[in-house]
Every structure is written in structure tokens, then in C-alpha cells.
């Protein structure tokens, strides 16, 4: 199915283009806008972005594949990133990771059977002083205990997915 941005998001793109001396510089912000609407960067999104910014699809794909936050496959309604780097590890990140794998019934990289949560490992998310922590969609959840984590996960169950 062909992809197109909503008129409101189109205006966001128009505004963005005024920030830079050329169109290409808007590529990453525009990909963000698309992912926020569509949930992931599908081949149709790549084709649309390429046309909008007058780039080849190869150039756009090259950029999409470089950055870990652009999803190249559909993901669950919510994405959980578990920080596993040293400061978090020292404060129990592995306990958090194991707990989530068991709770959601999937390993890192997988999605829970109900399609609600995709579980991913993250590298240092600049919250080392509040370790252990996870990022869920745009939100940081810090100084975690398992009890707190369980409550947080439940609070997401009823909420709609990050994209609409």
C-alpha cells in the first residue's frame, strides 16, 4: 500500500525544510515523523521519503539501516529498551532483563505473543545515575525495582500504541 503523511505531518515536513540549506539534511527528522505515524520504516515509507526529499531509495535505505532506532520490521504496540551497559549492569540490569523475558514470554529482539511489547537491548541511555532503567517508547523509567517495573508494564497494557 502506498504511504503518505497526514496533512498535519506534511506541514511539519514543510517547516522542517526551512531549517536547512538543503533538503537532504531533513532526512533523519523526516524519517522520525514517518515512523511516528507508521510504526516502522517500510519499503513504502522509504520510497515516499526518497521522492519527497529528491534522493535515491538507496541513499535513504543506507541511512535507515545505520541507525538502531529506525525499525526495519513491524514492532509491538510498545517497545521496551533495556539498558545493559556497565552502570546499569552493576545495579542489576540482568535481573530486569530476565524478569521481562519471563514476563513477556519472549527474548530480546522478540515481541510478546499478544503483540503488545517488543523487547530490545539498549546501550547506555544516558541515565546511568538512575540505574537500572528501561526506556518504553519515548519514556525513561529509572531507579527500577521489579515491583515498580511490574506496575509500569501493567500501566502500558491498556494504552494505545505509540504511533497512531
Amino acid at each position: 500500500m502506498a504511504f503518505a503523511l497526514t496533512p498535519e505531518r506534511e506541514r511539519e515536513v514543510d517547516e522542517l525544510l526551512t531549517h536547512y540549506p538543503n533538503k537532504r539534511a531533513a532526512l533523519i527528522p523526516v524519517l522520525w515523523i514517518c515512523q511516528r505515524q507508521h510504526g516502522w520504516i517500510s519499503p513504502e515509507v522509504v520510497a515516499w521519503v526518497a521522492q519527497r526529499l529528491e534522493l535515491s531509495t538507496a541513499v535513504v535505505t543506507g541511512v535507515v539501516t545505520f541507525y538502531t532506532m529506525f525499525f526495519q520490521h513491524p514492532v509491538g504496540s510498545h517497545v521496551i529498551w533495556v539498558c545493559r551497559t556497565l552502570s546499569c549492569d552493576l545495579r542489576g540490569a540482568k535481573v530486569i532483563q530476565d524478569h521481562l523475558e519471563e514476563k513477556l514470554g519472549c527474548h530480546a529482539g522478540g515481541t510478546s505473543k499478544d503483540g503488545k511489547f517488543t523487547l530490545l537491548k539498549a546501550e547506555c541511555l544516558a541515565a546511568c545515575g538512575q540505574a537500572p532503567m528501561v526506556q518504553i517508547d519515548d519514556d525513561y523509567h529509572e531507579n527500577l525495582t521489579l515491583e515498580k517495573l511490574d506496575q509500569i508494564i501493567e500501566s502500558y497494557r491498556g494504552t494505545p500504541s505509540a504511533q497512531e
Binding site: D89, L90, R91, K94, V95, L144, T145, L146, E147, K148
Partner: peptide
Amino acid sequence: QARHDDSTAALVRGRAA
């Protein structure tokens, strides 16, 4: 041996442990 022993893990497990 795993680097974080029981007492650090216990901090995370908290009352749920």
C-alpha cells in the same frame, strides 16, 4: 562468577523477592 551477587540483585528484586 556473575558480577553482581545476591545483595545487589536483592536491591532490584526489592519486596517482590
